[in-house]
């Protein structure tokens, strides 16, 4: 059975379960917020972990894998994608192009990192989503203010990830990979520099071919995983990989691409054997 686990039911989880039922895949949609874990489960069950909190999702995946169960995405993939620095390091090790970045561990280091990257620069928390707490700093004064604010936000924010700002003419690309195959992509357009559709960015279809297809396959080889959403910037020098997401939201990408993303995901899950490595 395909067991779709959630803590907050989004449109995506409903679409996944509807797709499974349409495809005659035995499926169970389970709210796991208040559940105690540690009991038994049939070995042939595949768990599609869709908890909205990344830490909880990862904890569940680790537990289930410890019991020998097959989890989508595997915990190791969640770990890589849930930490932007880990993602960056994995991409870098595979020589996959990405925006220039610097890492710093103090306020002074962060300001020096911004100066090295040049203005404008983007400060990102290493964990987080939906464009939360991203800061584009256009000058030294703005950098000083953001860095000072971050210094009061707790331990996660004392790891300063500073990224080159990529001019993207108001658009960037999100591509979906299922079972290692790039299946579709959208181009996101927004008047705001953060183009996330969760924040109102508009989507239209982006063909997946040529260099884009090749980069996505390299990303999958570097990160692994069953279902990934990859954010990229198109530049004159080629594609740059910005982020890789392991718990992708896709409700706004189905209509523009005409691709039934939830069906592709559940079909892939249904074909998985137990404990196949990433």
């Amino acid at each position: 059975m395909l067991r779709i686990l959630f803590t907050r039911l989004r449109q995506e989880e409903k679409l996944l379960v509807e797709a499974a039922r349409r495809l005659d895949i035995e499926v169970s949609l389970e709210d796991v917020k208040d559940r105690v874990w540690g009991g038994s489960a049939p070995e042939e069950d595949v768990f599609l972990c869709r908890c909205i909190g990344h830490g909880q999702n990862l904890a569940l995946a680790r537990h289930l894998e410890g019991r020998g169960r097959r989890v989508v995405n595997p915990a190791a993939v969640m770990e890589l994608c849930g930490d932007k620095l880990a993602t960056t390091a994995a991409l870098e090790a595979a020589s996959i192009p990405q925006p220039a970045y610097r890492l710093a561990l103090s306020e002074e280091g962060a300001l020096a990192a911004v100066e090295e990257i040049g203005y404008p620069a983007v400060l990102k928390p290493v964990t987080g989503s939906w464009g939360r707490l991203l800061a584009k700093v256009n000058d030294r004064e703005a950098a000083e203010a953001v860095v000072e604010h971050k210094s009061h936000l707790g331990a996660h924010h004392q790891i300063f990830y500073v990224q080159q700002y990529i001019e993207k003419s108001g658009s960037d690309v999100r591509a979906f990979i299922v079972g290692g195959e790039p299946i579709c992509a959208i181009r996101r357009e927004s008047g705001h520099w953060i183009t996330n559709t969760a924040r109102g960015g508009k989507a239209c279809a982006q063909p997946v071919e040529g260099e884009l297809d090749a980069v996505l396959r390299r990303v999958h080889r570097a990160i692994g995983g069953d279902f990934l959403a990859v954010d990229l910037f198109g530049t004159d020098g080629g594609w740059l990989v910005n982020e890789v997401n392991d718990g992708a939201e896709f409700r706004n990408s189905i209509a523009p691409t005409g691709v039934d993303i939830p069906a592709a995901v559940v079909r892939h899950c249904a074909g998985l054997g137990r404990l196949r490595s990433r």
Partner: peptide, 23 residues
């Protein structure tokens, strides 16, 4: 609001967004 039960119909205030929520 989170729909916590369909029978009887019951809602509660949904939890606030946490720092690691998302994709």
């Amino acid at each position: 609001l989170e729909l916590v039960s369909l029978d009887p119909l019951t809602v509660e205030e949904a939890p606030q967004v946490q720092e690691d929520w998302g994709e």
